[in-house]
Write a protein that binds this DNA or RNA. Structure first.
Length: 581
DNA sequence: GCCGTTTTCGGCCCGACTGTTTTCAGTCG
């Protein structure tokens, strides 16, 4: 799992923090931050690159390339070691406390010798911060509050939880008199896999009524900050929500600004500066005259900068600006492109709803095809048998006859599949002759996650080489916030998928989103095809598709990359794979 | 420390809110 890139990125992120804390050049700190991001997201493994290759990574120049080489050779970077020697690791940890940044952390360390969250808590209780310049009673309170947040969950939440809150707030605020426009922005609009806080943007002449309604919502636990243009609250579940109110004629610039990402915004503002313009949330202005040029729509803002409108899911400074300037933005997959779901369960195994209900719900969603893929016998707790599976197939064929003929839309074809269990050797539940009876096979790893890297890699490659396995389900098996992904040689796995015609799943469940956006970008370079599936265990889960599609967009996928956007005939050819029959 | 249609030096995004410092620094996004 851990590419050298991730280690180097973490090291440079730490170095950037240490530079800030020690009062070093802020621009230098920012360069290291940017380099850390570029390296972490770079497609090639840095351990395979020489100094020249390293310098092709954006934001990596001579000095940083040398540090990468030093790290790869010796496992350490002397410049980082020097700063580490000056500042205990606990001081950097202090900056993780909300409202406490590098300046205050350094003051606490230098004046009071505080180098851990525990020591800071004690010092506040002993009133030792009182004499420190810049630290008053309110600051003490804010820090204690921040520590409490840090120590409770305080972390990022899954996308579906954030989406529920955001859609609720937008609905409430949209009803307020004077609210001209209202939507969610930020990382949620970019459909990141986890969300730190929810950003809501509204356009109105007068912000008063919106701010009042917002702070009086029933699930508001505390008002963190309140002003005329910005108010922040925290919900009873601990999620922070920011509301910004802008004048209606600033809507486009504001939406662009509050959607981010920060890195994308820095790039767009730089583009503006180079054209003698200034971009802020209030509009795009001529620097000399101060006159507003555009800001009513996002399209206007991007167009004036020489860019096409860039879909929010691409706004991460991962090459979208360059692609936009060259007119080479991808034609991203949309949820409406999806023709069917290829990984779903019923109550025959661990699903909650019976076959008939799942199929009816799928038809309601307008799918052209739909695969039932219950678990196979080797996941012992599911008590699957050959007989039960064959009986289900018979029922699926009956329903297929029914739904295939139905007049509404063009009918829906049902596929009978299975989710096989990839055992520690890469084998699966059934021999070829039984597998041949399925319309498609998903195969996934459900246990033995901690095998040696070589064994894990062999396991996946062997699964790909099975002529009956069409899709690798939730490939890294991660559970966001709970279980890391497996440590296989993903280059080898992705290459095997491409070579054998095995698709990789983008599992849409919010706690998986597996593959992740970065893995998708990586796999696509190998020429892999993908399947965006819900892995639904209930009717409600079918709606998770939007998150899988969002993740695919973040991985720059087009319709053609995703097999379940294809017409059924093309899909069937793909599913035949290397089978001889 | 990186970068370049203002290219080898001199810039490097911009604004809101908070608390304490009576005019601004720190933090955040």
């Amino acid at each position: 799992m851990a590419r050298a890139n991730d280690e180097v990125a973490a090291l440079f992120a730490e170095y950037a923090d240490l530079i800030s804390i020690t009062g070093g050049d802020a621009f230098k700190a920012r360069v290291y931050e940017k380099a850390a991001r570029s390296i972490g997201g770079y497609h090639a493994d840095v351990s395979t690159l020489d100094a020249k290759g390293l310098k092709e990574i954006p934001n990596v120049g001579k000095s940083i390339a040398e540090k990468v080489v030093e790290y790869l050779r010796t496992g350490r970077v002397s410049a980082v070691e020097e700063l580490r020697a000056k500042i205990p690791a606990g001081v950097r940890r202090l900056t993780a406390i909300p409202t406490l940044g590098p300046k205050k952390a350094l003051a606490l360390y230098e004046e009071l010798g505080i180098s851990s969250v525990e020591e800071l808590t004690d010092a506040i209780h002993e009133e030792r911060l009182r004499d420190l310049k810049g630290f008053g009673p309110r600051t003490e309170e804010r820090i204690l509050h921040g520590i409490a947040l840090l120590q409770s969950s305080g972390d990022r939440v899954l996308i579906d939880a954030a989406m529920d809150v955001a859609e609720g707030v937008v609905e409430e605020l949209s009803r307020v008199t004077g609210c001209r426009r209202c939507t969610y922005a930020g990382s949620l609009r970019r459909l990141r896999e986890t969300i730190g806080d929810v950003d809501i943007l509204t356009a109105a002449e007068d912000s008063g009524p919106l701010m009042r309604t917002f702070t009086e919502l029933p699930y508001v636990m505390e008002v963190i900050a309140q002003g005329t243009t910005k108010t922040s609250i925290r919900t009873t579940k601990g999620l922070a929500v920011d509301l910004r109110v802008v004048p209606p004629d600033s809507w486009g610039a504001a939406l662009q600004y509050f959607t981010g990402s920060k890195a994308h915004n820095i790039r767009t503002r730089e583009l503006a500066v180079h054209q003698g313009l200034k971009l802020s949330e209030y509009g795009l202005f001529d620097v000399e005259s101060g006159e507003k040029i555009v800001s009513e729509t996002e399209e206007d803002v991007y167009a004036r900068l020489g860019l096409p409108w860039i879909p929010p899911t691409l706004r991460e400074d991962r090459g979208e600006i360059e692609a936009g300037l060259k007119g080479e933005l991808p034609d991203l997959i949309e949820e409406s492109d999806i023709r069917g779901d290829l990984h779903t369960h019923t109550d025959l195994t661990d699903g909650l709803a019976p076959l008939e209900e799942m199929v009816a719900a799928a038809a309601e969603r307008g799918h052209a095809y739909y695969a039932i893929t219950d678990h196979a016998p080797n996941l012992y707790m599911q008590r699957m048998t050959d007989e039960r599976m064959l009986a289900q197939r018979e029922r699926v064929r009956e329903l297929d006859g029914e739904y295939g003929r139905r007049g509404k839309r063009r009918g829906m074809r049902l596929l009978h599949g299975v989710e096989l269990n990839i055992d520690p050797d890469g084998g699966v539940d059934w021999p070829d002759d039984f597998l041949a009876g399925f319309d498609l096979c998903v195969a996934s790893v459900h246990s033995h996650f901690n095998q040696e890297r070589e064994a894990l890699t062999r396991r996946f490659v062997r699964a790909c080489e099975n002529p009956y396995i069409n899709i690798i389900g939730h490939p890294t098996t991660r559970i966001i916030g709970k279980r890391p992904g497996i440590d296989a040689d993903l280059d080898a796995v992705f290459a095997a998928c491409a070579r054998t015609g095995t698709a990789l799943e983008i599992n849409s469940h919010p706690d998986r989103l597996d593959l992740s956006d970065e893995h998708i970008l990586w796999a696509k370079r190998h020429g892999v095809k993908f399947a965006i599936d819900t892995d639904a265990h209930s009717v409600l889960h079918l709606a998770h598709l939007r998150y899988g599609v969002g993740t695919a967009q973040r991985g720059w996928l087009t319709k053609d990359d995703v097999i379940n956007t294809w017409p059924q005939a093309r899909l069937q050819r793909f599913l035949r794979k290397g089978r001889t029959a």
